[in-house]
Simulated scan of single mutants.
Amino acid sequence: MPALEARNKLFAAAVPAYLSASGLFVAVTTKTAADLAERIDHDSLDVRSAAAQIRSWTRT
């Protein structure tokens, strides 16, 4: 489903901003975020792995 795929990528790109707005400190470089987006884009990363990676970027 191409439309769903595009929305998932958009959501993944917005997550760090949402986490920051929620009061969490997000420590990630642009390159690291771009690398994650590329891995998601090329289907070499499943949802759970992507979530774990994003969680590792935050602290309260």
Rank of each mutant, 00 (worst) to 15 (best):
A13I: 12
L10W: 14
V47W: 15
N8W: 03
K31S: 15
V15E: 04
L45Q: 01
L19D: 07
E38D: 08
M1G: 13
L10V: 15
R48K: 10
I40F: 00
K31R: 08
D43C: 06
S44A: 06
S56A: 09
A51C: 05
F25P: 02
S49N: 10
D41F: 03
A17M: 13
R7I: 11
Y18L: 13
A3Y: 00
Q53G: 00
K31F: 10
M1Y: 01
P2T: 04
N8K: 02
S44R: 04
A6L: 01
A33K: 10
Y18N: 14
T32H: 10
F11S: 14
L24D: 03
Q53D: 09
D46P: 02
A13F: 08
R59S: 06
S44P: 00
F25K: 11
T30P: 12
P2Q: 10
L4Y: 02
E5P: 05
V28S: 08
R55A: 08
M1L: 05
R7K: 11
V26G: 00
R59G: 01
L19V: 01
A12N: 09
F25L: 11
L19N: 04
S44L: 01
L36W: 00
Y18A: 07
V15W: 07
K31P: 11
T60V: 08
S56C: 06
D41C: 07
A51H: 14
T29G: 14
L10C: 02
A51G: 04
F11T: 13
T60C: 06
A17W: 14
F11Y: 15
L45Y: 01
A51L: 14
W57E: 02
A6M: 11
Q53K: 14
A14D: 07
P2K: 09
G23Y: 13
L24W: 15
A21S: 10
F25W: 14
R39S: 11
A13W: 01
S20V: 07
A21Y: 14
F25N: 09
R39P: 06
T32I: 10
F11P: 10
G23C: 10
R48D: 05
R55N: 07
R59C: 02
A52P: 04
A27M: 12
T30N: 10
S44W: 00
D41Y: 02
V28K: 07
A12Q: 04
V26S: 12
L4V: 11
F11G: 10
P16R: 14
V15N: 04
V26K: 10
V15G: 06
A34P: 05
S49D: 09
